[in-house]
Amino acid sequence: MQYHHRLATREDLPAIVDIYNSAVLARSSTCDLEPVTVDSRQEWFDRATTERHPIWVGYEPHSPETVTGYLSFEPFLNGRPGYDVTSDLAIYLHPAHRGRGQGRDLLRDAITYAPQLGVRTLATTIFANNEASLRLFRSHGFQEWGRLPGVADLDGTIHDIVFVGRPVSSTA
């Protein structure tokens, strides 16, 4: 199945929060330890701009109103202007839509679209034991740029983080 995406709207925020919270509870792809609320994510959503840091929501072709995942182009590191040529990608998928090609479709389109945002480099951090995400990013040309040993503690389980990235161009 091929997924599609569109820019997120305010009406999508509850679905985005639900998807993110499924990752929080799974302890597989975020360091938040408690579920977030729509209110607590409103400022994050409002800071996202279509010009620099858009949020896309994924959906199946027959149901564009049903959010099945999302991708956000986040400011890199601390968001200082010198880092504007780099975007930190975040991809989260609804549990029922993992392993079905949605991550592949979102990531492929993000790589192609990044130059239109003025982005020359894409990067992200992934738990070292999250083989599915590592495989996804490697299959799209991301390389390991570093490993941060033991930097995450999720309820007493220590995790290494793998830092991956890749350059992009108008011919990516």
Rank of each mutant, 00 (worst) to 15 (best):
L89Q: 11
T50E: 14
G101K: 02
N129P: 10
D109P: 11
A15V: 04
H159N: 10
T125D: 13
Q102C: 15
I55R: 00
G103L: 06
V24C: 02
H159I: 12
H94G: 06
I16N: 01
Y92D: 14
P149D: 03
P149K: 00
E65G: 09
R10Q: 11
P54W: 04
W44E: 12
V36N: 12
G103T: 10
L93W: 04
Y92L: 13
S72L: 08
C31Q: 11
V24M: 01
T124C: 12
H97G: 09
I111Q: 10
N78S: 14
I16E: 03
T66L: 15
A15N: 02
Y92N: 12
R166G: 06
P54F: 03
D109Y: 04
P61H: 02
V67Q: 01
S40A: 09
L136M: 05
A110D: 07
L93E: 07
N129W: 06
T171I: 13
Q42I: 15
T124A: 06
E60S: 11
P149I: 00
R108C: 14
L148Q: 14
F45Q: 01
V168P: 12
I55D: 03
G101D: 09
D46R: 07
T49C: 06
Y83S: 07
L89A: 09
L89C: 12
P95N: 03
T86E: 03
A26D: 10
H5G: 04
N78Q: 14
H94L: 09
S40H: 03
H4L: 15
R135D: 13
G103F: 07
A152G: 09
E34Q: 12
